[in-house]
Design a protein around this nucleic acid. Structure first.
Lengths: 140, 140
DNA sequence: CTGGGTGCAAATTCTTTGCAAAACC
DNA sequence: GGTTTTGCAAAGAATTTGCACCCAG
């Protein structure tokens, strides 16, 4: 599907800048900062203002098209993968919460720290919800 | 062991501010920002300048006493847990790299986003190193 | 034509730095 | 006493905002 119809489907107005940003994110195999994107836009004669880029990225993030990753220095942005989720169940009260799989963050951290690109992962989580933790703490 | 001897062991001069910061971090069950720490110091009549706090946190981070976690907004700091490591082996060339377990970051993210405290995790990773990835990409 | 999108400059937020005074060993 | 640490004020990096103009629908 073209970016144009993709954007339309998400109720986002089509502009050449937005399409350019999506193309740039698509063709990168690692997270890009707003400034990276700014430079790459320039290279392809799509002169966007930095603040426009920030606004676009914010919009895309709200629409869950991209993911913002905060590491040291400027935030990095990546296109969202198949957003698989994890179900976290509280060990104490069994209430469960769904979270976005945190592996995209982990991937970027590892890429930055060790120069390693993950191809597969398996993640199991156990934990307790806030209320149960608070109750537990107040008993200690 | 007292903070004093702990600091001495790490070749860090003892000052009341440093001890206060360690106490504050120790008694928090979640990451604290520099400003959180600043406020908590005030509450206990340990008036430290914000820049002193940043410098202290930076020092502790270098000495690997604490971990800095970048989420949205100000960075959070936590005392380091038992730093367990992961061994990552490249699927292609078998070279291996040891990395710090990235779950401390993730724990904070999940705590902030879902109000869930992790108690256990199991993480298995597979990946390829930068060089192999680059070779592979240039073939594609 | 009209409301959302953009550029520009200025503001904000978080963090770092230079330097003189104070604290530690 | 000599080196480290601290406070203060000012600089710096990253991001956000206000407003006038512009363009897609």
């Amino acid at each position: 599907m073209s970016w144009e119809s993709y954007l339309k489907g998400n109720n986002i107005r089509i502009t050449s800048g937005r399409v350019a940003i999506l193309n740039i994110l698509k063709s990168s195999d690692k997270g890009l900062s707003a400034e990276n994107i700014y430079d790459l836009c320039k290279e392809q004669r799509e002169n966007l203002n930095l603040s426009t880029i920030y606004r676009t990225l914010e919009l895309f993030e709200e629409k869950e098209i991209i993911k913002k990753i905060n590491i040291d220095g400027p935030a990095l942005y990546i296109l969202k993968k198949e957003g698989h989720k994890h179900l976290l169940q509280c060990d104490l009260c069994n209430k469960s919460v769904e979270i976005q799989c945190p592996m995209e963050e982990i991937e970027e951290v590892i890429k930055a720290q060790a120069g390693f690109s993950l191809t597969e992962h398996k993640l199991e989580l156990k934990g307790v919800c806030d209320e149960c933790r608070d109750k537990k703490n107040s008993r200690d």
